[in-house]
Every structure is written in C-alpha cells, then in structure tokens.
C-alpha cells in the first residue's frame, strides 16, 4: 500500500474532521421528534464518500487511535482507551470499516454517483457496517443477546437515516464544488 504526501494529509484531515464534527452543536430537527443529532457519526460516511476506501478507512483508524491515546475527541468530550471497552467501542472500530466499504462502493463508479445510489451506498456502510461491528461488541460487553441490543439500536435509525441523506447531499455538493478529489 503506497501513500503519497497528499494521501497522508487527507487521512489526517478526515481524522481531524471527524473529531471537529464533534464540536458542532447537536442539531434538533422537528422531524426527529426532538432527538438531537450530533454531526460526528457522519465523519465515517463523508470520509468514505469523499476520501475513498483506502484514505477514508485509514482516516477513521487514525481517529480511533487518537481517541485511544486519550484525546477527548468523541462527542461530549469523551475519550481514552476505556471507551473501547464500553458498548461504544465496536462503533468506533465500525466507523473505520464503514468508511472503507463506502469508499469501495463509490469507487465502482467513474462519473458522478446518482444521489439515490449514493444514499444506498452510504446507508450500507454508515448504518449496516457500523452496526455489524457495534451490536455484537455491545452485546458482548453488556452480556446481552444480540437480538436485545439490536432492538435497542432501532431508536437510532431515524437519526441515522437523516444523517445518511445529509452525508449524501454534502458529498455531492463537495464533489461538484471541488472536482479534484
């Protein structure tokens, strides 16, 4: 795997962007029934859609490393290695896998990816892959069955759906405004 200087800077940038997204104030949308949405989980969706599989995946892996060494980068100022031992741990790892999968799916197209297709791609990674890692680890750390945990996660789905659509719209806008990606 070869990385040029631009790749390294992009990896650092998307790791930092995921961290900075935690600084956005939580946005309360009337459609979400008053449940606040933090922008941070969009980091992996945008890294995959904009930076591609290799750079996006490594960016989120770098973000996980920064959280692990104790920087309070997760939304709400959480951080430290202990976070990986909580139910959140699987989600942080899942972010990196999700960015990789989203980037890989986007790379299958040469021109602009149609909006509906990109929404599907981002949902596969940002919801499917993230929970594929998040739910089993949550179930394991909490000694609960996978079915019980999966039931709990349905609460997040409306917010996730909004984030997926937003990420797809942002990715399309950025790709149009900055075609050299």
């Amino acid at each position: 795997m070869t990385l040029n200087t631009r790749d390294i800077v992009m990896i650092a940038l998307f790791a930092a962007l995921t961290a900075a997204l935690g600084l956005f104030p939580p946005i309360t949308l009337p459609i979400a029934g008053g449940v606040p949405i933090t922008a941070q989980s969009m980091g992996c969706m945008l890294a995959g859609a904009l930076a591609g599989a290799k750079r996006g995946g490594l960016a989120l892996a770098l973000f996980a490393l920064l959280v692990a060494i104790g920087l309070p980068l997760m939304a709400g100022g959480r951080g430290g290695f202990g976070l990986f031992l909580t139910p959140s741990g699987g989600f942080i790892i899942g972010f990196a896998a999700a960015a990789f999968v989203i980037g890989w799916l986007f790379a299958r197209h040469s021109g602009e990816v149609p909006l509906v297709t990109s929404i599907i791609y981002i949902a596969i990674g940002g919801i499917g892959v993230v929970y594929l890692f998040g739910i089993p680890w949550w179930a394991y750390t909490a000694n609960q069955s996978i079915a019980v945990v999966a039931g709990k996660c349905t609460v997040f789905l409306p917010g996730d759906a909004i984030k997926v659509v937003l990420a797809a719209l942002i990715a399309r806008g950025v790709r149009r405004a900055y075609p050299g990606l």
Partner: peptide
C-alpha cells in the same frame, strides 16, 4: 515516518478546523 506525520498533522488540524467551522 508516514504514521507519525499523519498523527501530528491530525492533531494540528483539529484546532484549525474548529476555527474554520
């Protein structure tokens, strides 16, 4: 060398991004 460049860049970027935001 690449990993440590990425680490230091990311740490430097976080406050810069907060400012741009």
């Amino acid at each position: 060398a690449k990993v440590s460049l990425a680490l230091s860049l990311a740490l430097r970027f976080i406050p810069v991004l907060a400012q741009i935001t």
